[in-house]
Computed example of a mutant assay.
Amino acid sequence: MTTHSGAATISTALAPANPWSLVPPLGNLDAYITAANRIPMLTPEEELGYAKKLKENGDVEAAGRLVLSHLRLVVSIARQYMGYGLPHGDLIQEGNVGLMKAVKRFDPDQGVRLVSYAMHWIKAEIHEYILKNWRMVKVATTKSQRKLFFNLRSMKQGFKAEAGMEDGAMHRETLSESEIDAMAAHLNVKREDVMEMETRLSGGDVLLDPSPSDDGEQAYGPIAYLADASHEPTAMIESRQRDYLATDGIQEALATLDERSRHIVEERWLKVNDDGSGGMTLHDLAAVYGVSAERIRQIESAAMKKMRKALAEYA
Rank of each mutant, 00 (worst) to 15 (best):
M1N: 11
T3D: 15
T3W: 11
S5I: 14
T9V: 01
S11W: 09
A13S: 15
A13M: 12
L14Q: 12
L14V: 10
P16E: 08
A17V: 10
A17I: 09
N18R: 07
P19C: 11
P19Q: 11
W20T: 08
S21N: 08
S21I: 06
L22P: 02
V23S: 15
P24V: 04
P25Y: 11
L26D: 13
L26C: 07
L26H: 14
L26V: 13
N28W: 03
N28R: 11
D30F: 06
A31M: 06
I33W: 09
I33H: 08
A35L: 03
A35C: 05
A35H: 04
N37G: 09
N37K: 14
I39L: 04
I39F: 13
I39K: 01
L42F: 06
P44G: 08
E45K: 13
E46M: 14
E47Y: 05
E47R: 03
E47F: 01
L48T: 06
Y50G: 01
A51Y: 07
L54A: 15
E56P: 00
G58T: 02
V60I: 05
V60M: 04
E61M: 10
A62G: 03
A63S: 14
A63L: 05
L66E: 10
L66P: 10
V67D: 07
S69D: 01
S69K: 03
S69H: 03
H70F: 06
L71W: 05
R72Y: 10
I77D: 00
R79V: 00
M82F: 01
G83E: 00
P87A: 02
P87H: 02
G89E: 06
G89R: 04
D90L: 05
G95M: 12
V97E: 09
L99M: 14
R105F: 11
R105N: 15
R105Q: 15
F106A: 06
D107T: 06
